[in-house]
Nucleic acid binder design. Structure first.
Lengths: 200, 200
DNA sequence: GTCTATAAGCCGATAGAC
DNA sequence: GTCTATCGGCTTATAGAC
């Protein structure tokens, strides 16, 4: 309980992450995950009570790494707020040009499981996207922009549109077009009225 | 050859459309499609050489109806160009609130088949989205907006982001937020310089 | 063109030994 | 906690009759 981590379970999740992301949830059998993890199916089912449980663990494992990456791209970008937002899209475009890129694991899973709205994986995916939106909102609030919640939502929509569109067309240029739109929306956002305005 | 249409093949495509859209490609067996169409599997394989062939026919059947619907929403909307573009999103939000709505069949199929970039269905999906983008571009050209190709692309990104995001959150309000962003992008687009300017 | 029947294999999940 | 072995069912696709 209090001691070292369990490598077996982690190895199973790592194998699931690789295969589910590469080939899709329903395109990968539990046998394949077990084989790649170097365990038997019986061992896999000792750690996870069902494939659905494994799918949830797969997405759970992608939550923080993805968010951290977006924040890092934002933080390390030069320029003002619009350029920092745009930098997320430009960095993502770079990633998307890698041949093994397969879009957003959360969105693809939600597309596959669209007929199961209550699936645990759907909740994890929705929570992940909400965290991203909430983080953007705090950045916009800090910059004293009015309508920060709406603006954060619109940037998130552009980002998810990029994921979906680039996956279909296999053309990362769409991501840069989305980045320009995001830059423009942030640039033209008004500053919030201060609490004690000096003049009307 | 020259006479009446074949109802059997159409019935199979209609059954595939219903089931693939509702439950996803890989979640539906060829047996299920045949049963719903009221034919045996052997008959289905007479008309389609493989399941992949049937998937392609499914998307082919959704191409024109979807485009016609978007154009109709645009044409029938009141107000200027920004409002007409926004109307597409608002009408889509209304559709998305129907319990049987499952997002965009093209995007969901591309998410499922992300590991098969050369699949016929991917090409049909990409062509469909290109047609939408091209249509928007002609509308923006007609309105003498500069940068019509980029603007059309950004509106398309917002639309596909809406599809993906609303499917995940099951909250159609995201579509209206995207519509507002689209309205703003179109509203603030500059008019193109005329070919023979009177003055510099 | 549509039928009955079935091939050949993969699916998620489990039983029981150690 | 990990193994071997397997269940019962479902998968795409095909053979051959009519």
């Amino acid at each position: 309980m209090t001691s070292t981590a369990k490598p077996t379970k982690d190895r199973i999740v790592a194998a699931a992450n690789k295969l589910f992301y590469d080939e899709g949830i329903r395109g990968v059998s539990v046998d394949a995950v077990a084989e790649r993890a170097g365990v038997t199916k019986r061992t896999l089912y000792y750690h996870f009570k069902s494939k659905d449980d494994l799918i949830a663990a797969y997405l759970e494992g992608r939550d923080q790494p993805n968010l951290v990456l977006f924040k890092r791209w934002f933080d390390e970008a030069k320029g003002g707020l619009p350029m920092k937002v745009q930098a997320i899209f430009d960095n993502l475009a770079h990633s998307a040009r890698h041949p093994k890129w397969r879009g957003c694991g959360f969105l693809r899973t939600s597309a596959e499981l669209a007929n199961m709205p209550g699936h645990p994986a759907m909740k994890i995916g929705a929570a992940h996207k909400k965290k991203f939106e909430a983080w953007l909102q705090t950045e916009f609030d800090t910059a004293k922009l009015s309508n920060a919640p709406l603006l954060a939502r619109q940037i998130a929509l552009l980002l998810d549109g990029s994921f979906a569109t680039v996956l279909l067309h296999r053309d990362a240029a769409y991501m840069e077009a989305a980045g320009l739109a995001a830059n423009k929306l942030v640039s033209t956002a008004k500053r919030a009225a201060s609490k004690a305005p000096r003049s009307s």
